[in-house]
Design a protein around this nucleic acid. Structure first.
Lengths: 258, 258
DNA sequence: ATACTTGTTGCATATAGAGCAACACGAGCG
DNA sequence: CGCTCGTGTTGCTCTATATGCAACAAGTAT
């Protein structure tokens, strides 16, 4: 008998519901039944009934006036549980706090999930903020300091998968040549930290260092982000030293011995 | 024909999946298939297949070593979208920042959802923190300053529903007598702010004020929380004045004219 | 006023999903 | 070390569910 199709073993109506949830984005946080039906290729009665079920458990909320759906507070509740169980989340918090006070810039902890960088933890500086990042946000790995440091220490197959999905150009500084990216990753591993100079957003620079677990595996990145006026090229060495030290401290608290 | 059972119109396999997700708690962030099967009354093969489907979309994660499931990062991503669409979340942020700098204590924005208080926004002070609250956390409304201020301005039917679900005692200061709570709510409405003196957690005090939307409806609470050594009874008037002013400012930014 | 779009819901039908049983694997115990 | 028990997976069967169609209601646009 032929090998079973992987998709055949999943519950299709549950899949529908999850795909509907994931269709909401920052750019489109409110959606109509008909829009979802069109974009996901599902019958409008299917979408309507699935939405009613999601709403009954608080996963979406229907605006009674506009009839549009948005994501519901049950997701917020569950997300607060996601992190509570993550060692790096808890152990990094005091370290990020001190780093932010020390450097005066916003700091994050992030990991790679499904070929993207996702921010688990954020401690903000006192400067007026522009919501460039936030916990839960996903970003491409090839043009963020977090992403590049995680790729530098990652398995070759993860790196290859990222290269295969393409290196999208976000600014004039984005590295889109695979050969140049691989060279950059090698340099990052040598330096022990990575940088991104306006590679994802104009005017925004960041520096990141690897966080190790007790087995010596790189499991997260600790990064600092700010405007290029405050994170200038000539300051990078001093910032990097402190960021590496902070990442080392988080690693130590994770049971790393190196 | 008899009136249709409300539950009959929901998709049962989607309901199962959502109930499984909601079964995870802070106290039990990791669960086994058999535990979920027992606690939710579902067949273990049903739970197993539902979990596999949830995992395929990143809503849960299976630890390959322990075989235990925990909530996945897709929930974190989606939760970051939940708030981006909330006016009070965006408008309150700079106000909370200034208040925290001014008072030196942690501040929140919260709302009532399904008879519970849920924290939408949190700005932390520089004191060592104990993770008493976090965004997404739910708390009972009858013994938190946020909850009490929201109840004070709420419809009678919401207040009655809260009374009907019972007033659980958390500390020796928790108000468990409905008559006393209603009297307290009346006083809160008169004063324009509420307090909680160790009513939910020992040693923790908080003060909250109502946030209005453009129609003059109370849609959120702005609160400040800290240890009783720093938020003492004799300081409440001074703190309350600043908290009311901050809540007023958020209300103004929401289009409130009052 | 009419036409169109959207969302809901009754109904029919096909199949998906639930549950059973068997199996594989690992843990615990004697 | 062998046996027992618990856990999780998966093949299979059967029925109840979920999907889609069509009709309808309501709102919007012309």
């Amino acid at each position: 008998m032929e090998l079973k199709n992987q998709e055949d073993q999943y519950l299709s109506s549950v899949k529908n519901a999850l795909r509907i949830l994931k269709s909401f984005t920052m750019d489109e946080p409110e959606k109509k039944v008909s829009d979802i039906s069109t974009s996901l290729g599902l019958n409008k009665s299917t979408v309507s009934r699935t939405m009613a079920t999601l709403a009954s458990e608080g996963f979406v909320h229907k605006d009674p006036e506009t009839k549009k759906y948005s994501l519901g507070l049950s997701l917020l509740s569950l997300s607060s549980i996601v992190n509570s169980n993550t060692d790096v989340y808890r152990e990094s918090y005091p370290v990020l706090n001190r780093l932010v006070e020390n450097l005066g810039e916003t700091a994050h902890i992030s990991v790679i999930d499904k070929l993207e960088v996702i921010y688990l933890q954020k401690v903000e500086c006192n400067h007026p903020v522009r919501f460039l990042t936030h916990v839960g946000r996903r970003n491409p790995p090839h043009c963020t300091s977090s992403g590049k440091v995680l790729l530098a220490y990652a398995d070759e197959e993860l790196v290859n998968a990222v290269l295969e999905q393409g290196l999208e150009k976000y600014t004039k500084n984005t590295i889109t040549d695979p050969i140049k990216l691989l060279a950059n990753l090698k340099e990052i591993k040598k330096n022990g930290y990575s940088t991104s100079f306006e590679e994802l957003n104009e005017g925004v620079n960041s520096i990141a260092a690897p966080v190790y677990d007790y087995r010596g595996k790189v499991i997260a990145a600790l990064s600092v982000v700010g405007p290029k006026q405050r994170i200038q090229s000539h300051k990078v060495q001093g910032f990097a030293k402190k960021i590496i030290a902070a990442a080392k401290e988080v690693s130590d608290r994770m049971g790393y011995r190196g």
